[in-house]
Every structure is written in structure tokens, then in C-alpha cells.
């Protein structure tokens, strides 16, 4: 693993968060904080390197902090797909391919991601280091399908063109507002509310 850093220390922001996280667990049960701490690692790596992932040295650090055997941390981190164990692009494009999104055109969203992001397929990272493409299962945004989750932001009601525009915006350094790309209010019907409109 050539991307593997040789050391990892929590920065001030992560330390502040850890100080809030640890007291949530009873004394002697600190190991329960392994998932929140792994998130802190991933956020910090995103802040510091632009690639939100969990290197092994950081897992060892979490193990040491929580008094666990390192292998127990590896087990947790490799179990949950939310933790990226490989170096990632700056933006993690997560295309939902589950049935509702698929019926509503997730194939177009995927194609747009590949075309605009310069990606070969699921699991690929773009050469410019900006994007990593993943397939995810239903993320619960079916009413506004198809959807694309970028890092932790949901972008809904997408089609090919709007997905391309979204990715181009990311390339130019903008961070488009999450939510429906057609201006839908939450999960209201397309074109605005049709019931309870008067009084």
C-alpha cells in the first residue's frame, strides 16, 4: 500500500470531537466508540489531504486510544462500507442503482458520472484525483429518484444533463446545494403541491 501514510495523529478539531464522543460510553466500554472515532479519522483525512479515507496507521491509533487490539478495529472498519480503506478521490460519487432509481434512470446518472468525471466504472478513481465512483444500495431517497450521493450530500431528481452539470460544478470548485435538482420542495409532487393548497 504505497498510499499508506507512516503516521497519524488526531488534529485539534478531531480531538475536540473525541472529547465529546468518549464520555457517551460507560467507563470500561470505550471500545464502543470505535465507529465514531473511525468517522473522525475519515473526516480528518478529508480535511487534511482531500481524500476521506482511513489508513491503517490511523486504525492502530484508534485501537490504542480505545484500548482494543488493532485487529478488532480492522474488523469493524472493513465490515462497514462507509469507511474507505483505500485512498479516495476528493468527491465520492455514490450512485444508487437499486430498483426505484434504476427505473427512473440511474443508468443515465452513472453514464454521466463516467463521462464527466473521467471514470471507467464502479470502484474507479479519476486521474485528476477528484472523483471516486461507487455503487450503493437504496439510500431512502426513492421518491426523488434517481439520486446521487456525493460524500454525505444527496442530489436528487437527476438526469444525464443535470448530473454532468453537477460534476462540472464540482470540478470548478463549487459545491452545489444538495437536494432536488429540479427545485422540488422536499418530497412534494413534481411541479409543486396539489392538495391542501388553499386555506
Amino acid at each position: 500500500m504505497s498510499d499508506e501514510p507512516t503516521s497519524f495523529v488526531f488534529d485539534a478539531e478531531a480531538e475536540a470531537n473525541i472529547a465529546k464522543i468518549l464520555p457517551r460510553y460507560p467507563a470500561g466500554k470505550q471500545a464502543s466508540a470505535v465507529i465514531p472515532l473511525l468517522y473522525q479519522v475519515q473526516y480528518q483525512m478529508g480535511r487534511q489531504t482531500g481524500s476521506a479515507w482511513v489508513p491503517r496507521v490511523a486504525m492502530d491509533m484508534v485501537a490504542e486510544r480505545l484500548g482494543m487490539a488493532p485487529i478488532r478495529v480492522y474488523e469493524v472498519a472493513s465490515f462497514y462500507f462507509m469507511f474507505n480503506l483505500k485512498k479516495m478521490g476528493r468527491y465520492h460519487l455514490q450512485v444508487c442503482g437499486t430498483t426505484p432509481c434504476w427505473l427512473r434512470g440511474s443508468d443515465d446518472v452513472l453514464r454521466a458520472c463516467k463521462d464527466a468525471g473521467g471514470l471507467k466504472g464502479y470502484g474507479d478513481s479519476s486521474a485528476d484525483g477528484l472523483f471516486t465512483l461507487s455503487e450503493v444500495e437504496c439510500m431512502g431517497a426513492c421518491v426523488n429518484a434517481p439520486m446521487l450521493c456525493i460524500d454525505e450530500d444527496y442530489h436528487e431528481d437527476l438526469n444525464y444533463e443535470r448530473t454532468v452539470a453537477l460534476i462540472e460544478a464540482l470540478k470548478s470548485g463549487e459545491r452545489p446545494a444538495p437536494g432536488s435538482s429540479i427545485g422540488r420542495q422536499t418530497s412534494a409532487p413534481e411541479g409543486g403541491p396539489i392538495v391542501l393548497v388553499e386555506g
Binding site: 487490539a69 485487529i71 478488532r72 480492522y74 474488523e75 472493513s78 465490515f79
Partner: peptide, 9 residues
Amino acid sequence: VPELGATGR
């Protein structure tokens, strides 16, 4: 020696 584990799922 807790060195063996089940990784992945």
C-alpha cells in the same frame, strides 16, 4: 494474542 480476526463481510 488477539491477532486473528474476520475482516470484510
